[in-house]
Computed example of a mutant assay.
Amino acid sequence: MEFFDLLSYPFFQNALLGSLLASIACGIIGTYVVVRRLVFVSGGITHASMGGLGIGFFFGWNPILSALIFSILSAFGMEWLSSRQGVREDSAIGTFWSLGMAIGIIFIYLKPGFAPNLSDYLFGNILTITSLDIIYLAILSVILLVVFALFRREIMYAAFDPDFAKTRNLPVNTIKYIMMMFIAVTIVLSIRLVGIVLLISILTVPQMTANLFTSNFGKIVLLSVLIGFVGCILGLFLSVVLDVPSGVFIIFVQIIIFLLLRGVIRLTQKSKQRVGA
């Protein structure tokens, strides 16, 4: 099937637009996650969202909405336990990670019959993305762009130097909770892209690739958005042609891009060293 033939289908057009918007949101939040070393936190929130999905399936609610609420509460719970209750951060993450998965599995098994489209949420199927999903991703992307354009310094101060931030009268704890909320929202709204099982990769792999070329926060965001979108397009197209799950192939392509670029950079560095010697 030709690429331009695929473009004539509305579901594929939605998939491309959803990929772009998800790449923007994940590019911004993923960079924050990577530079703040919150990868394990994002993994905990991702798997905790399973609890919200299970509750949604059981009561017949919108599973994305219930997962969104559950994930935000889980993110707040992790932050509260680790910062206010003296619980180690990894222990707090592990607690909510396991709790969300347990609740999700319990409610899914209690639901008569098989949960519809469960594999799409676990492994991703961006071809099923709807116009409403695109609207939500567009709103999230715009909000994140505005927030980071206006308050990037304040966010960075609160993240890396909270004592200095407090001397500037910045609401450090409020900023942390807001960022945890954004992480949770971005994760849930991107579930259809690659699924719960692999979602942590789309928040880290493009950023790792971008970090090969620069350490500047803004440049990492821009490069990770570009790398993420290119990976989505290639993975989406190849998944349709080869008839494999789109989420799995998107992540596979992005990892291949990272390995290839890393290999090229290392070879270039070695050749320069040889010339210099």
Rank of each mutant, 00 (worst) to 15 (best):
V197R: 05
V264W: 12
I28A: 06
I200R: 06
N211V: 11
G30I: 03
L99R: 03
I24D: 01
N62A: 08
N62Y: 07
I126C: 06
T214Q: 05
F213I: 12
L118S: 09
F76V: 03
G51I: 00
L127D: 08
V142G: 07
V41A: 14
F96H: 03
R168M: 15
A115Q: 06
N125M: 05
E89N: 12
T95V: 14
L7I: 13
R192A: 13
G30W: 01
W80Y: 15
L38I: 07
G231A: 05
F40D: 08
M78F: 05
M208W: 10
I105R: 06
P162W: 00
F40H: 09
F114G: 11
I55N: 04
G30N: 04
V147S: 10
L38P: 03
Q13N: 12
N62C: 07
R168F: 09
Y136P: 15
S201Y: 05
Y109S: 14
P162F: 01
W80D: 09
F96T: 06
A138Q: 03
I55M: 07
G104F: 06
K219P: 06
F148A: 04
G195C: 07
L110Y: 11
V244C: 09
T174W: 15
L6Y: 07
V221N: 00
V275I: 14
I255A: 10
V34A: 06
L170C: 02
I233S: 03
L170I: 08
A15P: 04
T209R: 12
S82Y: 04
I196F: 02
L145T: 06
S49D: 05
W97I: 08
S224V: 09
F12D: 01
S91N: 12
I126V: 11
